[in-house]
Amino acid sequence: MIYTCYGLTFVSDLALPELLAAAASAARSEPDVQIRLGQVPTEGLTDGRQRGPFLWVSPRALWLRVPRIARFLVSDGNLITIAPEPGVDEDSIRVFLLGSALGALLFQRGLLVLHGNAIRIGEQCMVCVGASGAGKSTLAAGFLRRGYEILGDDVIAVDADCRALPGFPRIKLWQDTAQRLHIDTAQLRRIRPALAKFNYPLASPVIGVPLPIRWVYILGSHPLPDTRCEPIHGLERFTPLRNNTYRVRFLEGMALKREHLQLCGKLAGRIHLTRITRPERGFELDALVDRILADLAAHP
């Protein structure tokens, strides 16, 4: 089956319902990436360095073992080989395939990969990053409800021109978030059978083109009752960009830290970067969306 995302065509042994099917014309040309079911070494890489109990990295390959799910080998930015464990369900494989493995592949292709979501604002886009639980996906759903297009959720690929590449049309939502947004989870597919987290499919992005990133918001929460917007300048811009890089520890063995620093510098030079901190209690989603829209308008 042939799919498209991040401007790449993927041919995959595994069905990937989250992704957009590629146009029929794509079948005639060579795919950018192959996803195969096959043999993956059991004990890591012979030419790489061990970076964690289940992680090996070399400049050309990344080996990842997810116990009871699968082993993944991501090579040369164009091949992901998956060796599933016996009896594992495909949903669980896809969570790690479309997360860590895809993130590693995008790094190998020289992209900056951020952990967050990207929302179209006119002919540009804003990216929202932040720690797990900060409310990124909820915020994306809030923008979606207002009619904004989502370029991607979770794994955001940024090219050398600081453009976010269109990802795949879904948001991952926890049960409580979906309830608050009046989304009926009975109709949704769980991202993994045992997890109360759901794939909320979006209408296909109207535009499948990369959009320049103009704003980055770092979403967090604090025990205070007010929402704060604090612009970040100069040197202070680097740490949040680094910390919100997707699976930043992958970079260590990939010999990509130089490229990563340069991409962060390019991005830092063109964005309006703001820390937005909401109250821990009582997530006023509509108010937060309004606050960000006002800030976007104040910094065109």
């Binding site: 100069g234 040197l235 680097f238 680094r242 260590e252 962060c264 510098g265 390019k266």
Partner: peptide, 24 residues
């Protein structure tokens, strides 16, 4: 060393150790 302009300031990294340094 690799250096990147960060909004007018400078972030540098030693290639060997991968440590970051900032200058403003």
């Amino acid at each position: 060393l690799v250096a990147a302009d960060m909004d007018g300031d400078l972030v540098m990294m030693s290639i060997e150790e991968g440590e970051y340094y900032g200058i403003s």
